[in-house]
Simulated scan of single mutants.
Amino acid sequence: MRIVVDYDRCEGHGLCEEQAPEVFRLDDAGDLVHRFDGRDVPEELAEAAARGAGVCPVAALRVAG
């Protein structure tokens, strides 16, 4: 499973980071860092990653395959 990020939509609310800090974090400038950008999220983190994507208030995160 991959998480696709629309970085232009992301407003840095940080809700994804609260749900899955192993997958998402905000850097010092408040920009999203997706640790598995462009590659599959490890199976053991997939559920948390999907939760993180699901709470995004601006729909900047999408679960793909």
Score class of each variant (00 low, 15 high):
residue 10 C to K: 03
residue 20 A to I: 05
residue 32 L to V: 09
residue 42 P to S: 11
residue 39 R to Q: 05
residue 47 E to F: 14
residue 55 V to T: 14
residue 38 G to F: 12
residue 47 E to T: 15
residue 25 R to I: 02
residue 50 A to W: 01
residue 44 E to L: 01
residue 25 R to G: 05
residue 64 A to T: 08
residue 32 L to E: 03
residue 1 M to E: 00
residue 36 F to I: 00
residue 27 D to C: 06
residue 13 H to C: 12
residue 29 A to P: 00
residue 54 G to M: 12
residue 65 G to I: 01
residue 32 L to D: 07
residue 34 H to T: 10
residue 59 A to T: 13
residue 5 V to A: 07
residue 8 D to Q: 11
residue 1 M to V: 12
residue 40 D to G: 10
residue 31 D to W: 11
residue 63 V to T: 13
residue 24 F to A: 04
residue 36 F to V: 01
residue 35 R to L: 12
residue 46 A to V: 15
residue 41 V to C: 12
residue 41 V to I: 15
residue 59 A to L: 14
residue 57 P to Y: 02
residue 39 R to W: 02
residue 59 A to N: 13
residue 56 C to I: 09
residue 1 M to D: 05
residue 23 V to Y: 07
residue 15 L to H: 08
residue 29 A to M: 04
residue 22 E to P: 05
residue 10 C to Y: 06
residue 38 G to M: 11
residue 28 D to F: 04
residue 3 I to L: 09
residue 54 G to R: 13
residue 10 C to L: 07
residue 35 R to V: 00
residue 31 D to V: 13
residue 62 R to A: 15
residue 25 R to S: 12
residue 12 G to R: 01
residue 63 V to E: 09
residue 21 P to G: 00
residue 62 R to L: 15
residue 65 G to R: 11
residue 31 D to A: 15
residue 32 L to T: 09
residue 47 E to D: 15
residue 10 C to M: 06
residue 5 V to H: 00
residue 35 R to W: 02
residue 43 E to W: 01
residue 40 D to P: 08
residue 25 R to Y: 12
residue 34 H to D: 15
residue 50 A to L: 06
residue 46 A to M: 15
residue 8 D to Y: 09
residue 45 L to F: 07
residue 52 G to C: 10
residue 57 P to E: 00
residue 14 G to Y: 02
residue 51 R to D: 07
residue 32 L to G: 05
residue 43 E to G: 11
residue 33 V to D: 14
residue 4 V to N: 10
residue 44 E to F: 05
residue 11 E to V: 14
residue 17 E to S: 00
residue 34 H to N: 12
residue 1 M to C: 09
residue 11 E to H: 10
residue 25 R to L: 14
residue 23 V to M: 06
residue 2 R to E: 13
residue 42 P to E: 02
